[in-house]
Nucleic acid binder design. Sequence first.
DNA 1: GAGTGGTCTAGACCACGAC
DNA 2: TCGTGGTCTAGACCACTCC
Lengths: 236, 236
Amino acid sequence: MTEPRYREIKRSIVASIRSGMLKPGDRVQSEAEIVEQFGVSRMTANRALRELTDAGLLTRRSGAGTFIADAKPIGHMIEIRNIADEIRARGHAYRSRVLRNDAIKADAKQATLLDVRVGVRLFHSIIVHHEADFPIQLEDRLVLASAAPGYGETDFHQQTPNEYLTRIAPIARVEHRVTAALPDPEVRALLGMQELDPVLVMDRRTWSGDRLVSHATLTHPASRYALTATFEVKLD
Amino acid sequence: MTEPRYREIKRSIVASIRSGMLKPGDRVQSEAEIVEQFGVSRMTANRALRELTDAGLLTRRSGAGTFIADAKPIGHMIEIRNIADEIRARGHAYRSRVLRNDAIKADAKQATLLDVRVGVRLFHSIIVHHEADFPIQLEDRLVLASAAPGYGETDFHQQTPNEYLTRIAPIARVEHRVTAALPDPEVRALLGMQELDPVLVMDRRTWSGDRLVSHATLTHPASRYALTATFEVKLD
DNA sequence: GAGTGGTCTAGACCACGAC
DNA sequence: TCGTGGTCTAGACCACTCC
């Protein structure tokens, strides 16, 4: 019934990361230090650190120590790295155009998307992300106001909604739905597309804890964007 | 330098699964039995079984035993379950139409796709997969003949190429690329699509061991098919 | 009641890294 | 040299399942 010791240790370290107390590259306690702090045997300390390492949160170097891993691929496929990082990783300039970021009350359709009642307070943002001056993603996002009170005042030229949300509300679950479509004229104009050029549409729902906190529709010109995803089967 | 004991135990169990000796639902050795067979301590046996459980290959029931897990989502997102399973899971009839399955020698383009030299022996299959009599996927696949010698004689009405390949060559790595397009008239006809209806195209490359063994282009009518993928962050 | 997994301990030996 | 992680042992107690 009581929580296992190794899990308590894991939670403690995860909490330090989430609170921002520990940042990528920082050193965490050695096994010996955990043995002292928590009064456990070394095997238990080792298990906690090893499991967090397997999960990708830590990296260990024998002889040196255990450190917070940088970046978080946060998934093996369709990485949730935000579009800005993705663009910069390709060596291109990133720029965004914020079309709106309003506080609203959910209408029937929006309430369905976020699984809340009509009238619940939301934020609604629409942003066009550019890669080297070409629009590459139209992001239409709904955010539960109670989960992200400061969303409406955030300057999304400085950081993407994705970055903001992952900072204030740790992601517990993400669901994607990907399909193809022909864009309506408005979307086509916003993305600077030719007629008859299809779009790749990704609907992304994000949970924090048990709560569905955000729904985003990400629309990309197929001629300029493809999703890639790799999965490795590792058995050792 | 020498292989850790827990990894040796894991390899032994994985080998039993791959060889077909152990099937989903079968019981594997208990920790006590592994202690005897391998002459290790129980902690070492436990680690081997626990890691294979975390990896999804086994399931454990305290008091009952350790068993081979069924199915293999083989990834947390864009599951590699083949299209036939996917259709049947939705409660629909699955049917396939095999348009070709030929032994060929790689031309320049095919050689590039599979990263081999021109002239290497390949199989080339084209199959249309139907859900409840509606075409839902056009599968155009190249397979390295040396990795799957029996591919050309396999009846792909009985099992999908995916099923066949995963059985004879354990998948080590999968890479996806997803994009949207407007189909050319031939593809449109094969998939029974309206004009101006876009397709969702997934290129999938599959490695077994270090070898790239297959390249498949999977084309879906956007009106009838969407990719979905979920990722859960679990920290315990 | 016998067997199973889940957890934990208090030691141990080793290779490696930093100093 | 000393601290680090990587591995392993031979016990232990418990809750659970199956018979």
